[in-house]
């Protein structure tokens, strides 16, 4: 049986199209890779999403390696699983909205992220691993002691952070002019340049920044928001990993490795 060429060509188009559609619809292999009873998106790797820089929790060292408090704690988890940690730097929105986890970009998020009710709706959190407060950073010598002193002034916040949400709550009441920056580095740069009068972010982040720029900046106010950081995984997607992270956290707090990491990155030991 021979087909005329035009028909053959058209048939070929249909065949290719059908192939393309089936290929496009092929289901992703999810949870195929296992390590220590835990599903992982990539074999031999604990893939962790974060948003850089956020020293002392995660930032790049002189050699370009990502280091920090979160990195060290997640390394404990990776070690427990017998795999290596692989860190992906993504916009904080992707982490906070849960999409990075939903789409299988990473197994867990470790980004100095506060556990909030809204975030809990879109991802599963581990037990809290860090108590954080918000703080106001100003250039040394400026007389801004509270939000009240900043009426009509430009105050920097970082997009998609709890510090930004906190400032938003008082924006109207205190007459603040909030300027949102995409990342911490831009917020710091703007404060250094005088584009903003003060900046709000997590206290440990400012402590680290002051350490690196002695004499230039000071924290003049702390806002105790009762925030706690947590690691997160895909909503209802990986209970084994959350269990493992919690086990590792509990163990680390007992055997002193948590305290060691805390001293290394934050300084003074936690009160508890």
């Amino acid at each position: 049986m021979t087909f005329p060429s035009a028909v053959r060509r058209a048939g070929l188009i249909v065949a290719i199209a059908a192939l393309a559609v089936t290929a496009g619809c092929a289901k992703k292999d999810e949870g195929e890779v296992q390590a220590g009873g835990v599903k992982l998106v990539e074999k031999g790797k604990l893939t962790v999403c974060t948003h850089l820089p956020y020293a002392p929790f995660q930032s790049k060292d002189a050699g370009g390696a990502v280091v920090g408090f979160d990195v060290d704690v997640m390394d404990l988890v990776a070690k427990e699983l017998g795999v290596e940690q692989k860190i992906i730097d993504t916009p904080f929105e992707g982490i906070k909205s849960g999409q990075d986890l939903n789409t299988g970009k990473c197994d867990a998020a470790a980004a100095g992220m506060t556990i909030t009710e809204e975030r809990q709706k879109v991802m599963d959190f581990s037990d809290p691993y860090f108590d954080a407060t918000q703080a106001l950073l100003v250039k040394t010598g400026k007389a801004y002691r509270s939000l009240d002193d900043l009426r009509g002034k430009k105050v920097g916040v970082q997009a998609a952070t709890t510090g930004r949400d906190y400032a938003r709550k008082y924006e109207a009441e205190k007459g603040l002019q909030l300027v949102e920056f995409e990342d911490l580095a831009a917020e710091q740069q703007a404060l250094a340049n005088g584009q903003i009068e003060a900046a709000i972010n997590d206290l440990p982040v400012w402590t680290e920044y002051i350490k690196e720029h002695p004499g230039g900046f000071e924290v003049t106010a702390e806002f105790d928001t009762g925030e706690q950081y947590g690691f997160s995984v895909k909503k209802d997607g990986n209970p084994e990993l959350i269990k493992k992270i919690n086990e590792v956290l509990a163990k680390a707090k007992q055997d002193g490795s948590y305290d060691k990491i805390y001293e290394k990155w934050i300084g003074k030991l936690p009160n508890s």
Binding site: G98, R119, L178, V179, E180, F181, E182, E187, I196
Partner: peptide
């Protein structure tokens, strides 16, 4: 424009969309 840091008055369409995404945790 987002790289420059924007206020509620100087916000433009994309940043506004991303901000609302953050607030509502929905795309």
């Amino acid at each position: 424009a987002y790289v420059l840091g924007v206020t509620a008055q100087t916000i433009e369409v994309t940043k506004f969309g991303r901000d609302t995404l953050n607030d509502r945790v929905n795309a």
